[in-house]
Amino acid sequence: MIDPDWIMGLGGGLMIGLAAAMFLLMNGRVMGASGLVGGLVDGSGRSNAAERLSFLAGLILVPALIAALTGGYETHLTQNVAVIVVAGLLVGVGTRLANGCTSGHGVCGISRLSLRGILATLAYLLAGGLVMVAFRHLLGVI
């Protein structure tokens, strides 16, 4: 049976892909969330900081506005402070070391058949899957 969530996933996914397509064809840039914010944090993206900030403003403010108008979205994020901090640190360090995350390596890399994007995506999917086995099924932490 077709789950309505799959249709929403496909529709939302198309919007993500159109956003990446627009950013590439209009601005000549790869739409990678970790790279766009990371370049601001470590100073490597100072030359196009305004473009980065404009992107992040749209990314943060428009969903906030939609959530406010529609009565909110639930992220169901864990309440475990240690898990949140460790996960955040890992995501920050990992995406910058790998030069990309789900949007950069996943969406933008796979769509141009980049070997780096494909291998990175396989690596983070495998790591994420193993974490679920270890921390959910064996340890029961998450």
Partner: peptide, 28 residues
């Protein structure tokens, strides 16, 4: 590339958030 992606995947699994959604959900 490989070590970074593994570390990222671990954090992604632990919290269920990657950089894009982490920023998109800041408002709520």
């Amino acid at each position: 590339l490989l070590l970074g992606s593994v570390l990222f995947g671990m954090g992604w699994g632990l919290a269920g958030l990657c950089p894009g959604p982490a920023m998109a959900s800041l408002g709520f």
